[in-house]
């Protein structure tokens, strides 16, 4: 079997029972970690869908990352903390609990070699941590809340995106700000409602490193009423110039996540007033060539290390696993 995005279908829908917020596969593909509005973390075993849940932060968990060795999972809380947990165990206990930011910790990412963890928060800061939870560096420069962080997979660079649509590129070794990508289309200020809205919800880099994709929303004519549409803004990595905009044609919602698949296709998870969609774009085209509607609404997405499966976190209390290939047999999605 091979990647065939047009054949994407749900293979598992696992019920937690409370609205799910975030999800993340472990790099070895054994587990899926999720967080939910009941203040717990869940670890799902991919083999059989069995679940272990445990109380985590003093608040909601906004983001989850797992170190490359598959031994440690890290969670970002709205209680200003990041917590390092063992991946295994029936009742995992924190290895390190760190007061990481003043305000929510919104985003996490792990460097490919596992040597650094980046966090972004409501104090407009980006921080770098080592695997033992020690602060390595603090990066100042954002003028609004940091919504996403992303390590360059090959170079010693970190990207961080904020509510205002700014993406800062940092040199990890020195902490120097190298340049800024301005994805202004992903930010709205609505004067009538008095609110800033949008932000860089996620970033991804194409396999050849030539395209940076930033995802969020646009057409926010009524931010408080969820009237907006998902949008990917692509930049040319080499010169930093905007390449193209990829709107979710006719779909209402927020683009929560974006990933490049092994065949170069971009997948975007959109959720909001228009429901839940997986949108598939060819990287050089502006319209999605395929979209899959899922039940309820999506709030997060994670790509399995096999590159064939995606997990989505849903408000209806379910985690859904979709395979991006033809069905093995005509059997309905399993319910648990």
């Amino acid at each position: 079997m091979s990647l065939d995005t047009k054949q994407t279908h749900v293979v598992h829908q696992w019920k937690h029972g409370k609205p799910v917020i975030a999800c993340c596969f472990d790099p070895k593909g054994r587990y899926l970690f999720t967080s939910s509005e009941d203040y717990t973390l869940q670890r799902w075993k991919m083999d059989d869908g069995s679940k272990v849940a445990w109380p985590a932060h003093d608040s909601w968990v906004r983001d989850i990352a797992v170190l490359p060795d598959g031994e440690t999972v890290i969670t970002a809380g709205c209680d200003d903390q990041i917590i390092y947990w063992p991946v295994e165990g029936e009742k995992p206990e924190p290895r390190h609990t760190i007061k990481a930011h003043e305000g929510w910790v919104r985003a996490l990412d792990v460097k490919n070699d596992g040597s650094l963890i980046a966090s972004g928060g409501n104090d407009n800061l980006v921080k770098l941590w080592d695997p033992q939870g020690k602060l390595v560096r603090e990066l100042k420069g954002h003028e609004s809340n940091v919504y996403s962080v992303f390590f360059h997979p090959k170079e010693d660079l970190l990207l961080s995106g904020d509510l205002g649509g700014m993406v800062h590129q940092w040199e990890v070794k020195t902490g120097n700000l190298v340049r800024t990508f301005e994805a202004k289309d992903l930010h709205t200020y609505n004067g009538g409602q008095g609110v800033h809205y949008g932000g860089i919800r996620d970033m991804a880099l194409s396999a050849d490193g030539s395209i940076l994709a930033c995802v969020g929303l646009h057409k926010a004519s009524n931010p408080l009423g969820a009237v907006n549409e998902p949008l990917i803004v692509q930049f040319n990595w080499s010169d930093g110039k905007e390449l193209r905009k990829q709107p979710g044609e006719g779909v209402k919602g927020i683009g929560w996540k974006v990933e490049f698949l092994s065949d170069g296709v971009e997948i975007c998870a959109s959720g909001g007033s228009g429901g839940a969609y997986l949108l598939f774009f060819k990287p050089t085209e502006v319209k999605p060539f395929h979209q899959l509607k899922l039940p309820d609404t999506i709030r997060d997405m994670s790509l399995h290390p096999d590159g064939l499966q995606v997990a989505t976190a849903h408000h209806d209390g379910h985690v859904r696993i979709s395979r991006m290939e033809a069905k093995v047999a005509d059997k309905p999605a399993e319910k648990k």
Binding site: Q193, G194, V195, H196, Y197, L224, G225, A226
Partner: peptide, 17 residues
């Protein structure tokens, strides 16, 4: 002070407002 009619992203908007 406007606006708190937060049918969407209640927490982000209350944080801001």
């Amino acid at each position: 002070h406007s606006n708190y009619d937060t049918h969407n992203e209640n927490f982000n908007f209350h944080l801001e407002q």
